[in-house]
């Protein structure tokens, strides 16, 4: 380092000295810029995941219900031998898939319209309408649905005119409706972005080469937006897989989140088993993300 040309540091202002120091020491610069966020990620996220993994090997004293720090595979054996855990896991994955498909089907035409057909003003209005529900509290939205679907709610009253009482208040259909509604904005935004990234010149080239609208969509548009769709599906799938607040409010259905929640201290206190159970959605999401990466979804995020 050329320390010989540096003037006596006392005469230069501190900020300039600091920036010069950071410029020369890239490592320190990185520590200051990425450090806080990264350490947050490591401490809060990775640390808790590791704690979760470790505690899943602990057991519960049957007499005192206190956690005992002895290593065993008992929780995993319980899960493997208990058909109820498989059933709930399967049901939750199916629910997550149904919510994802529903949201993609709803988001697709809207995003296409907003990105490629609407004027700038209409596009902004649509975007605002999509984002606005995100500013409302999650629980407020779920409670609104609970009232709407309840025994004396408007949905039941509407169908009651035709002499039919769907009794949605305790069914999994209610849960599917509510979660599809709540995660819809998260699905629309990535798909909208994907449509906006399709260059007009590609569509013109396709049409110049004689392709009709359907063929252009199948051969040009769809492959280009697919990563965006997969990226969007990560949101609705993972959020549904982990949700445990909506289920008890709008239905009787037990989903993975409730199962973990009830063992984590709600109604059936057994924290080590809860930790072992939470490895199920982690594993499912791990696989899902690997597939998504193979489909280049991360480049569309």
């Amino acid at each position: 380092m050329a320390t010989s040309v540096a003037p006596t540091s006392a005469r230069r202002p501190f900020t300039r000295r600091a920036s010069a120091f950071l410029f020369r020491h890239r490592g320190v610069q990185l520590t200051f810029t990425l450090g806080p966020t990264l350490s947050w990620m490591v401490v809060i996220y990775l640390f808790s995941l590791v704690v979760l993994l470790i505690s899943s090997f602990w057991t519960l004293n049957p007499l005192t219900s206190q956690v005992e720090h002895t290593w065993s595979l008992k929780n995993y054996q319980t899960i493997i031998h208990g058909s109820v855990y498989w059933r709930v896991a399967f049901r939750t994955v199916m629910l997550a898939a149904a919510v994802t498909v529903t949201d993609v089907l709803l988001a697709f035409p809207l995003s296409y319209y907003a990105a490629r057909m609407a004027s700038a003003r209409v596009r902004n209005v649509l975007l605002f309408a999509v984002v606005m529900p995100l500013w409302a509290n999650y629980l407020a939205k779920v409670f609104a649905w609970k009232t709407m679907l309840g025994g004396d709610g408007p949905v039941d009253a509407f169908f009651g005119v035709f002499g039919w009482h769907p009794g949605l208040s305790s069914s999994i259909i209610a849960l599917w409706l509510v979660l599809s509604y709540i995660w819809l904005p998260y699905v629309i935004l990535p798909i909208l972005a994907a449509f906006e990234r399709v260059p007009d010149s590609y569509l013109e080239a396709s049409s110049d080469l004689g392709a009709k609208a359907g063929r252009t969509f199948r051969k040009v548009v769809w492959p280009l937006v697919l990563p965006g769709v997969v990226a969007a599906s990560i949101f609705s799938f993972s959020l549904t897989l982990g949700d445990y607040l909506a289920a008890p409010l709008v239905s009787k259905t037990l989903v993975l989140g409730n199962l973990i929640d009830s063992f984590a201290g709600g109604t059936a206190n057994n924290k080590p088993l809860a930790a072992a159970l939470s490895m199920i959605p982690l594993a499912i999401m791990g696989i899902y993300l690997l597939i998504a990466r193979a489909m280049h979804a991360f480049e569309a995020l």
């Binding site: 109820v84 709930v88 009830s262 057994n270 088993l273």
Partner: peptide
């Protein structure tokens, strides 16, 4: 507790 989960989770 595990049996109860079988009841509500079926």
């Amino acid at each position: 507790t595990q049996k109860w989960v079988e009841v509500i989770g079926q």
